[in-house]
Design a protein around this nucleic acid. Structure first.
Lengths: 109, 109
DNA sequence: GTATTAGGCCTACAATGCAGACGCCGCATG
DNA sequence: CATGCGGCGTCTGCATTGTAGGCCTAATAC
């Protein structure tokens, strides 16, 4: 297990995909991120992140058939791999370990 | 409020400083990070992060007097500013919002 | 056809993460 | 007092991640 490190944004993207389940293609992912974090990223930004996650085998993707809709182009749906889940769990644990006990200091402003 | 974004590593550093209180100079910070996250970063890495946090006004620092010890050079002690605390709180909230409800999927491995 | 809309991809640059080498300063010890 | 050693700040430079913006295509609508 060669220790995969996720950047913060990559984590966010993975989480959004998980949350969306089988509706996870770029546009809804982007919307989800915006809704949850207020971060309004460009589509291009998202695609590069997704590509890099793919390179690390944290996600896989499949193309859909074209849709019978207004601009119904085929969509690329993403799924988080087990390796991706593991990596996510690891970074979460690391963050939690550091947060633990510090919250109180935050509240004091 | 011009929206300060913290990278993941910067968050970790801030948290370590908070945790160390008034013993927060580079070497213990490094040790703390290693102990909590298993991340064994070079000193240089840490200093650049600290410098950048300084530039964003998330930390301040003061030099100590030289110490009467073997290699007793002066140390640079760091303190998290209110702005730093705010930024930390914000990124934590963002992460939490996304994590919320996803933990269950992680457990299923 | 031509507009309009959804959505994938490419290019290129900025910000962050990280390491290794350098050098200072003070004690120690002969 | 000179040489060495140990603690620690600092500099330079490259690698990885983050982000924007524009281009292109496929499909319906008119």
């Amino acid at each position: 297990m060669p220790e995969i490190y996720l950047g913060e944004f990559e984590q966010i993207v993975l989480l959004a995909i998980l949350r969306l389940g089988d509706e996870a293609y770029a546009i809804p992912v982007r919307a989800e991120i915006d809704a949850r974090t207020g971060r309004d990223v460009a589509r291009g930004a998202l695609y590069t992140a997704l590509e890099r996650l793919g390179a690390k085998a944290c996600v896989t993707s499949r193309m859909s058939d074209p849709l019978p809709e207004r601009g119904g182009r085929s969509r690329r749906y993403y799924t988080v791999t087990p390796a991706g889940l593991r990596a996510l769990g690891a970074s979460r644990a690391a963050l939690l370990a550091l947060w633990n006990g510090v919250e109180s200091q935050l509240e004091r402003r």
